[in-house]
Simulated assay, not measured.
Amino acid sequence: MADNQNPPGLDGVIAAAKAQAPGRGLPPVHLWDPPNCGDIDIVIRKDGLWFHEGSPIGREALVRLFSTVLRKDPDGFWLVTPVEKMRIEVEDAPFIATRVDRVGDALRFTTNVGDEVEAGPDNAIRVDVGEDGEPRPYLHVRRGLEALIARPVFYELIELAEERQTPEGLALGVASNGAWFAVGAPGAHQL
């Protein structure tokens, strides 16, 4: 049920996010359809740091709180409450995968905002190539939101990778929860 008593703007986002009871999981932002209240000067930089009005948001708990009401729509990234939504800027991916652990047959990632995500059919790993020619690996976290896999974590994935024949040729990849993900272009590891 919407709480129309929340103040507008950034304070409203904080109040709405805090209203989510502990232990109940993430707020159902995908179900909310509030009016667009415009842009708010929040930027998530490529390195995963969150800025408000040009200054870093130094409180990790506040960044975590905002991350729970973040939504990706076809027209951009939004902080969403039951009564309003405000567009923010995301330079690359909104999260950074800072750790990976092998748990049984799963690869479990931890993000910079505390999410734990197991790669698998619903949370794919994909690798793009950046303008500099370097790999840019990503993990799907939830509802279209991704985490850039930090370089040290990507190196761990490469250590876990095995060769597999694909229709395009031999490729290195990792398996998790019954899915296999290439971590490089076919033949790239043979150069």
Results as ranks from 00 to 15, higher is better:
residue 3 D to H: 15
residue 7 P to W: 10
residue 9 G to K: 05
residue 10 L to P: 14
residue 13 V to P: 04
residue 13 V to E: 08
residue 16 A to N: 08
residue 17 A to K: 13
residue 17 A to G: 13
residue 17 A to I: 04
residue 18 K to Y: 14
residue 19 A to H: 12
residue 22 P to H: 00
residue 22 P to M: 02
residue 25 G to F: 04
residue 26 L to P: 03
residue 27 P to Q: 12
residue 29 V to S: 12
residue 30 H to E: 09
residue 34 P to I: 03
residue 40 I to W: 03
residue 41 D to Q: 11
residue 42 I to F: 11
residue 44 I to A: 11
residue 46 K to W: 11
residue 46 K to P: 14
residue 47 D to W: 07
residue 47 D to Q: 02
residue 48 G to P: 10
residue 50 W to N: 02
residue 51 F to R: 09
residue 52 H to T: 03
residue 53 E to L: 00
residue 54 G to Q: 01
residue 56 P to L: 07
residue 59 R to H: 15
residue 59 R to W: 08
residue 61 A to Y: 03
residue 61 A to M: 15
residue 64 R to D: 15
residue 65 L to A: 04
residue 66 F to P: 01
residue 66 F to Q: 13
residue 67 S to T: 12
residue 67 S to V: 07
residue 70 L to T: 11
residue 71 R to W: 07
residue 73 D to P: 06
residue 73 D to F: 02
residue 74 P to Q: 07
residue 75 D to Y: 00
residue 79 L to K: 06
residue 82 P to I: 03
residue 83 V to M: 06
residue 85 K to C: 13
residue 86 M to D: 06
residue 87 R to E: 08
residue 91 E to C: 13
residue 92 D to S: 13
residue 94 P to Q: 04
residue 97 A to L: 05
residue 97 A to W: 01
residue 97 A to I: 07
residue 98 T to A: 12
residue 102 R to Q: 13
residue 102 R to Y: 04
residue 105 D to G: 05
residue 105 D to V: 03
residue 107 L to C: 06
residue 107 L to F: 02
residue 108 R to M: 13
residue 108 R to L: 14
residue 109 F to W: 09
residue 111 T to H: 09
residue 111 T to L: 09
residue 112 N to G: 05
residue 112 N to V: 08
residue 113 V to Y: 10
residue 113 V to K: 08
residue 115 D to H: 14
residue 116 E to Y: 09
residue 117 V to Y: 10
residue 118 E to K: 10
residue 120 G to W: 06
residue 121 P to G: 14
residue 122 D to W: 05
residue 123 N to I: 02
residue 123 N to Y: 08
residue 127 V to W: 01
residue 129 V to Y: 08
residue 130 G to Q: 04
residue 130 G to S: 10
residue 132 D to H: 07
residue 133 G to K: 08
residue 134 E to A: 11
residue 135 P to L: 05
residue 137 P to S: 10
residue 138 Y to F: 15
residue 138 Y to Q: 03
residue 139 L to F: 09
residue 142 R to S: 01
residue 142 R to E: 05
residue 143 R to A: 00
residue 143 R to M: 04
residue 145 L to Y: 03
residue 147 A to N: 05
residue 147 A to E: 00
residue 147 A to R: 02
residue 149 I to R: 02
residue 149 I to Y: 12
residue 150 A to T: 01
residue 155 Y to L: 15
residue 156 E to K: 15
residue 156 E to H: 14
residue 159 E to W: 09
residue 159 E to H: 09
residue 161 A to N: 05
residue 161 A to S: 03
residue 161 A to H: 00
residue 163 E to Q: 07
residue 164 R to I: 02
residue 169 G to R: 10
residue 169 G to K: 10
residue 171 A to M: 02
residue 172 L to P: 04
residue 174 V to F: 00
residue 176 S to C: 09
residue 176 S to Y: 03
residue 178 G to I: 12
residue 179 A to V: 11
residue 179 A to W: 07
residue 179 A to Y: 01
residue 181 F to S: 00
residue 182 A to T: 12
residue 184 G to N: 11
residue 187 G to H: 00
residue 189 H to Q: 00
residue 190 Q to V: 13
residue 191 L to M: 13
residue 191 L to T: 15
